[in-house]
Simulated scan of single mutants.
Amino acid sequence: MRIEGSRILITGGARGLGRRFALDLARAGARVGVCATNEERLARLTEEARQDGVEIWTHRADVASEAEVQGLFDRFVERFEGIDALVANAGITRDALFVKKKDGAVQTMPTAYWNEVVDVNLTGVFLCGREAAKRMAEQGTGGVIVSISSVNRSGAIGQTNYSATKAGIDAMTVVWAKELARYGIRVAALAPGYVATDMTAQMREDVRRKIEAMIPLGRMARPEEISHALRFILENDYVHGRVIEVDGGLRI
């Protein structure tokens, strides 16, 4: 797919990696739309793009809501007269041990933590992927769907919910690739390791050092390195049905 002039929708694009994806693709000439639930962050992104000499369309939407996802795609397609690529980036964490015994009492991961993460990270990707595929099939011009997985898809302590959703994304990527190729729609996933973003910057120094010591390259990824990998997936028309790992050699 040619980036310049393409119509790309990014979910969860108002901060972190999503923000970097949006700005980099807009600078490369793509027509970019971003959704998020925080309107203040969306406004800041719009202004940042304007100051950078590019334009990013924004819309508030909760990817866990079927009605809001359908409305998001209706408005994006109306604004850009179609869609060429979806980057399903929206995701959250609600970390807790599955079972934890402390001072003689046993605590468990709250069901609410499970439901919140599954709703956004898995159901949200399903809803957005389905709407994107539907519109692309109707257009008859193909497209690309990229979901954001994680190195922690193989299982990380304290992340029963998060790891399960990322493993689910990997499975959906394979299924969709098999089903959607007939419509000229490519599907792939990107699995970053730990990335130096505003979220990881809030970690305690000792925790951050411990993580970096586990990574063979000895550091977290820079956001632009993950963004570069996304662009590779979008541009290379033979990447299909695969999860591209960009993790510095880390194995959980």
Results as ranks from 00 to 15, higher is better:
M1F: 15
R2A: 09
E4N: 13
G5W: 10
S6F: 13
R7E: 07
L9T: 05
T11S: 11
G12I: 04
L17D: 01
L17T: 02
R20C: 13
F21Q: 04
A22H: 03
L25P: 06
A26R: 01
R27F: 15
C35I: 04
T37S: 01
E39P: 03
R41P: 03
R44G: 08
R44S: 10
L45E: 03
T46N: 10
T46G: 14
D52T: 10
D52Y: 14
D52W: 15
G53E: 06
W57L: 14
R60H: 05
A61I: 07
S65T: 08
E68N: 09
G71C: 08
L72H: 07
F73Y: 11
F76A: 05
F80S: 05
F80P: 07
E81I: 07
I83D: 03
L86K: 07
V87G: 01
N89E: 07
G91C: 03
G91W: 00
T93Q: 09
R94D: 00
V99T: 14
K100P: 00
A105T: 13
A105Y: 15
A105Q: 14
V106Y: 15
P110L: 11
P110G: 08
A112R: 15
V118A: 09
D119L: 11
V120L: 01
L122A: 02
T123C: 09
T123Y: 15
G124T: 01
C128F: 06
G129W: 00
E131T: 04
E131K: 08
A133I: 06
A137S: 10
E138P: 05
Q139V: 03
I145V: 10
A156W: 00
I157R: 00
Q159K: 00
T160E: 02
Y162I: 01
S163H: 00
A164Q: 02
T165D: 00
A167I: 11
A167R: 10
A167V: 10
D170I: 11
M172R: 02
T173F: 11
V175I: 14
E179F: 08
A181E: 06
G184N: 04
G184Y: 05
V187D: 00
L190D: 01
L190N: 01
T200K: 00
R209A: 12
R209G: 07
K210C: 08
E212G: 03
M214H: 05
E225P: 12
H228P: 08
A229S: 13
L230K: 06
F232L: 14
F232K: 06
F232S: 07
E235I: 09
D237K: 12
Y238K: 03
H240M: 06
I244P: 03
V246H: 11
L250M: 12
R251T: 09
I252C: 07
I252L: 13
